[in-house]
Design a protein around this nucleic acid. Structure first.
Length: 255
DNA sequence: ATGGTCGTTATACGA
């Protein structure tokens, strides 16, 4: 079972890349983020024609998440239950007995801003939600754009990023708190080449110079981590014309 | 220190 996550940064613009990538990679379940697309305009028909069921939680201009799967998506849940939030950042569903919680974590802008405070509050609410879900679903993945690089190794230059947004200690502590519920960072279950990232700023030729961060993750519960066979970023779509600024991450599980 | 580049029912703002 191939489980993937991809911040597409506008589903409308990236739909041709997405359809080509689904054909090439054949993932079984995919979490998408930053759709910037209302549900009324979600391309359900094109995806169905490719053999994918889809469920979405979209909004205009900003945010928006979806799950695609080759099998029916059951027990779909949108947002974080009990957490007041205008922004559409979470969708969950169950496919073949595997629970996927797909998240687009708040970016946070800069330390000390209202958006940063919102990010930390949001992560506290997410952690409580995932804790509840883990009681119900032993086989669970939390995937998405976490907007957090777990360690210096997940940045092109730890000194530059030290204490900055996406790398600050409170953000990293929040991610560790989520993982400490009983999850594994699938990517780090395997030897990886240094300089492995999932996001590169459009500015300053970030991708060409590999000035990236690893901020997109597949976190797997222990029963799934035990059967994880690979996890890697797929840089091919990032090399195309008019790419998303994020690469997809694909993890394979023997199920 | 600054700005740079994308996307958006845009023309300022979020990332």
């Amino acid at each position: 079972m191939k489980i993937a996550t991809w911040n597409v940064n506008s589903l409308r613009v990236r739909l041709p890349h997405l359809l080509d990538w689904l054909t090439a990679v054949q993932p079984d379940v995919v979490g998408l983020q930053e759709l910037k697309c209302v549900d009324e305009k979600f391309p359900f028909d094109e995806l169905q024609a490719m053999g994918y069921y889809s469920v979405a939680n979209g909004q205009k201009t900003y945010n928006g998440v979806a799950i695609l799967a080759r099998h029916p998506i059951e027990d779909v849940s949108r947002d974080i239950p009990g957490f007041e939030d205008e922004q559409k950042r979470v969708i969950a569903g169950t496919v073949n007995g595997v629970r996927m919680i797909n998240v687009y974590v708040v970016n946070g802008q800069d330390l000390g801003t209202d958006k940063y405070a919102y990010k930390l509050r949001w992560l506290t609410a997410l952690t409580a939600y995932v804790a509840e879900e883990m009681k119900k679903y032993p086989k669970l993945v939390v995937v998405g754009d976490f907007n957090i690089a777990p360690t210096g190794e997940d940045t092109h230059d730890p000194a530059i990023w030290e204490g900055k947004i996406l790398c600050s200690e409170p953000e990293r502590a929040a991610l560790r708190g989520l993982i400490d519920l009983g999850l594994k960072d699938s990517f780090r279950l395997f030897d990886q080449p240094p300089g492995s990232f999932t996001w590169w700023d459009y500015r300053m030729a970030g991708f060409r110079r590999n000035l990236g961060l690893r901020i997109d993750h597949v976190l797997a519960s222990h029963p799934l981590a035990d059967v994880c066979r690979s996890c890697a970023a797929d840089l091919a779509p990032r090399r195309l014309e008019r790419p998303s600024d994020h690469a997809p991450v694909v993890a394979e599980f023997e199920l």
